[in-house]
Simulated scan of single mutants.
Amino acid sequence: MEAPQGSFPVTTTVVTIQTEMPVRDHIVWSLFNTIFMNWCCLGFVAFAYSVKSRDRKMVGDMTGARTYASTAKCLNVLVLVLGLLTTIIFIVIIIIRAYSS
């Protein structure tokens, strides 16, 4: 009472699991640095890399998008640190001049 072996079609199911994290392009951070803390035009360069990262992400090139996003993040950190150091040094100079006179 067994069915012949070749009588039923064989079906396969393919399950695609996406394990990669989405690429963050840091465009808002780059825009902030471009407008408010554009130290030696590094904020604008970070913004350009963020736009390139977003373009690569829209095309589907996740490796290129990650590369551009990483560069944009490094530039944004550099701009932020330089901007904060400049602000702190400026405030210290003003305080020193105010108390020395």
Rank of each mutant, 00 (worst) to 15 (best):
R56D: 08
G6D: 01
F90R: 03
M37T: 15
T67W: 00
F36Q: 11
I95Y: 09
T16G: 05
N33V: 11
K57R: 04
K52Q: 09
M1G: 03
A72Q: 06
F90L: 04
L78R: 12
A3H: 07
N33P: 06
L80N: 08
M37R: 10
A48F: 05
S30W: 03
A98I: 13
V51R: 07
G43A: 15
T19W: 07
G60H: 06
T87N: 07
V10L: 10
D25Q: 09
V79C: 14
G6P: 00
S101Q: 00
D55F: 14
V10M: 13
A48K: 10
I35N: 10
N33I: 10
D25P: 04
C74I: 09
I95H: 00
V51L: 01
V92P: 02
V28T: 15
C40S: 15
K52Y: 11
S101Y: 03
V79I: 03
G6E: 06
F44D: 15
Q5E: 13
A48Y: 10
A48C: 11
F44A: 15
V15Y: 06
R54W: 12
I17M: 09
L84I: 12
F36H: 01
L84E: 14
W39E: 08
T11K: 12
T13N: 09
F47G: 15
H26A: 09
M58T: 12
A72S: 04
R24W: 02
T13C: 04
G64P: 01
I17C: 09
V28S: 09
F47L: 15
K73F: 13
N76W: 10
N33T: 13
Q18G: 08
G83K: 08
I96G: 12
T34D: 11
I88R: 00
A65S: 08
L75E: 08
S53C: 08
N38R: 12
V15S: 10
L85Q: 01
V15T: 14
P22S: 10
L84F: 03
K52M: 13
F32H: 02
S101L: 02
N33S: 09
A98C: 07
I96Q: 07
L75I: 05
I27Y: 14
C41G: 11
T71I: 13
T11M: 10
T16C: 05
T19E: 13
V28L: 03
R54P: 04
E20L: 03
G6W: 00
I94M: 14
W29N: 06
A3G: 08
M21S: 04
S7A: 01
I89L: 01
G83L: 02
F44E: 15
M62R: 06
G6K: 04
M1C: 03
A3M: 00
A72C: 07
I35D: 04
T12S: 03
W29T: 06
S70H: 04
A65W: 03
P9F: 03
F90G: 07
P22T: 10
M62H: 05
V77D: 09
L31C: 14
F47Y: 15
M37Q: 11
I96A: 12
N38W: 08
P22F: 11
C40G: 11
A72L: 04
V59D: 00
F47V: 14
K73D: 15
D25K: 07
L85F: 11
D61S: 00
C41N: 08
I94T: 04
